[in-house]
Design a protein around this nucleic acid. Structure first.
Lengths: 115, 115
DNA sequence: TCATCATTTCGATAGTTGTCGAAATATCGA
DNA sequence: TCGATATTTCGACAACTATCGAAATGATGA
């Protein structure tokens, strides 16, 4: 892959609704992996920042792989990772999913009048 | 490819709002490719069924690759392809993007009360 | 300081996929 | 029937990525 959104300085918290082409692609790619989506679902469901290890315990996944996916989600700007001592806490970055969803639904409105 | 949603009989027009795990993943994967997304955008923008060749003319892409992406979008259930003689017409399958968007925003609502 | 635990990085591997040119198939008009 | 045009299939290649075990790093508490 030549130039992804991952190369960007990236997902500034301000202005969460504006989605670059590259950022939109990065988000979709991050979400497209089933394991990552499930991970995100768990984080979302938790509501409060979720401990890394708790996820690890609940999912049949190696630590290395989990770390990898967390980085992907973070790089895409989907989650925030608060690093506190040796524990890391994951939380959904607010507004991002909504922004993406809006972008998707924005594609729909035009319906063919002839049909 | 082991077991993806593509194997399913699948994107029945009825009940567009229910999204299987597999189907959701297939949709996201289909959308994650930049070229495919642009293709979809063009189809959406056209409103009315868009000729395959018109797309081909407007995009720097080989016929083989275009065919491949169209099949991906169709298999994912994002577009309908009406085959009419030697021309094929592409149109957005209604409701699918909305359903996916809904699924995404559904992840958001729970916000941490402590923070 | 040291053992322990959480997380990351490294290296390697297997599987997936986007891309194309060339060949095949299909449809139409002459 | 024949040639032209539209689309698909085939075969191949390069790039990417999910995955893991092992080793490294970092932080804590004894």
């Amino acid at each position: 892959m030549p130039v992804t959104a991952s190369d960007q300085p990236a997902p500034s918290t301000t202005n969460p609704a504006r989605l670059t082409r590259a950022r939109r692609a990065a988000l979709l790619k991050a979400l497209a992996d089933p394991r990552r989506f499930e991970l995100l679902e768990r984080i979302a469901k938790a509501g409060c920042p979720l401990g890394c290890s708790q996820v690890r315990a609940a999912l049949p996944i190696s630590a290395a792989t989990l770390s990898h996916h967390i980085k992907e989600l973070e790089t895409a700007g989907l989650i925030d990772v608060r690093r506190e001592g040796r524990f890391h806490y994951l939380s959904l970055r607010p507004g991002v999913l909504e922004a993406l969803a809006a972008r998707l639904t924005a594609l729909e409105p035009t319906t063919c009048p002839t049909r």
